[in-house]
Nucleic acid binder design. Structure first.
Lengths: 97, 97
DNA sequence: GGCGTATTTGGCCAAATGGCCATATACTGC
DNA sequence: GCAGTATATGGCCATTTGGCCAAATACGCC
């Protein structure tokens, strides 16, 4: 396993999550799979924009998709990313101290 | 406390960490405080660049600085960010599967 | 004060980001 | 095949990012 430059790879993963819309998506998916349409409505951006966010999350191994007829369902592949929420909250509390 | 739009705030925290140089810095600081000079040598970028990274981390409540004479020591304020490393690794493993 | 060292700030610039619109593709049902 | 719905892709553009260099600031020492 490549041990050198692991930070670059890890940075890419973090970057994939470091976006408000994508956090909304991940948070929603942490409670069960849903369709692109559901996520689009939730995020409030253009469907094309949400689709790009999903493609990016998929490319980084964070979500997975499954087509069912006319719909495409996405689900969270690495639930550990939810740890980020609690830590980010803690950082925010630290700052406001 | 503002509960709405918490995702935007969390995204800002993640973004603060989503950079190779800053991950190197955080990883180093997780093993104890050190000076800007130490970090500059470790990261391998210009001192001014490292200083800006540190300012950004400080602005987000992730690190804290302490001046001792001619030197400025930085230390990690929110060690929970280290959780990110293990999760990022897990995501990377998932992708390579 | 003046010099040397450590750190920060400002200016600049190429590259990446994230949004929208328009268009293309995938599927269902007729 | 054609029409309608769901999702993805390409083009475009304003903003942000992250690096370097040069200059400014902070401190210790003589």
């Amino acid at each position: 396993m490549s041990k050198c430059n692991g930070f670059a790879k890890q940075a890419r993963v973090l970057k994939a999550l470091a976006n408000e819309s994508r956090l909304i998506i991940v948070d929603r998916l942490s409670r069960g799979e849903c369709t692109v349409g559901d996520l689009t409505e939730l995020v409030g951006s253009d469907a094309s924009t949400v689709s790009k966010h999903l493609a990016l999350l998929r490319a980084h191994g964070i979500v997975e998709d499954r087509r069912a007829g006319n719909l495409v369902y996405y689900r969270l592949l690495t639930p550990c990313v939810c740890k980020f929420f609690s830590c980010a909250t803690q950082v925010l509390e630290e700052r406001s101290r």
